[in-house]
Design a binder for these strands. Structure first.
Length: 106
DNA sequence: CATATGACACTAT
DNA sequence: AATAGTGCCATAT
């Protein structure tokens, strides 16, 4: 099997997501800003989609801007479960007080 | 090179 | 507050 080479976007996105400390979360828009593309929230999601298989992928720590867990290829349930394990509270596919756990890439 | 798809965001209604 | 429409970026075909 030919393994695909990680795109530049995936590298940048992975770096940003890897900075998110355990117990905290971030949004696709914030990650996009962190990599220097504040309008590339979509591309960020696309990059994370390919990062399935990456080591230490805190991709579940990335949620939408309005506090929704967003999507997750393979099962949003999984993402919610992981986030709950991190000490967060998810209700109706929505992160409770997500703004309180948001990591702003200082 | 153009079209279609996708783990989004913002504004208007 | 919720839904719909439009915009933006990157990858795949």
């Amino acid at each position: 099997m030919a393994r695909e080479k990680p795109s530049q976007l995936q590298k940048d996105v992975f770096k940003a997501t890897a900075k998110i400390p355990r117990g905290k979360i971030s949004t696709y828009a914030l990650v996009a800003e962190a990599i220097g593309k504040p309008r590339a929230a979509r591309a960020v999601g696309n990059a994370l989609n390919k990062s399935s298989g990456m080591p230490s992928c805190p991709c579940h720590r990335v949620v939408k801007s309005d506090g929704s867990v967003g999507g997750f290829t393979g099962g949003t349930r999984r993402k919610i479960f992981l986030l709950r394990k991190e000490g967060l509270e998810i209700t109706s596919g929505n992160v409770s007080g997500f703004e309180n756990h948001l990591y702003k890439f200082r």
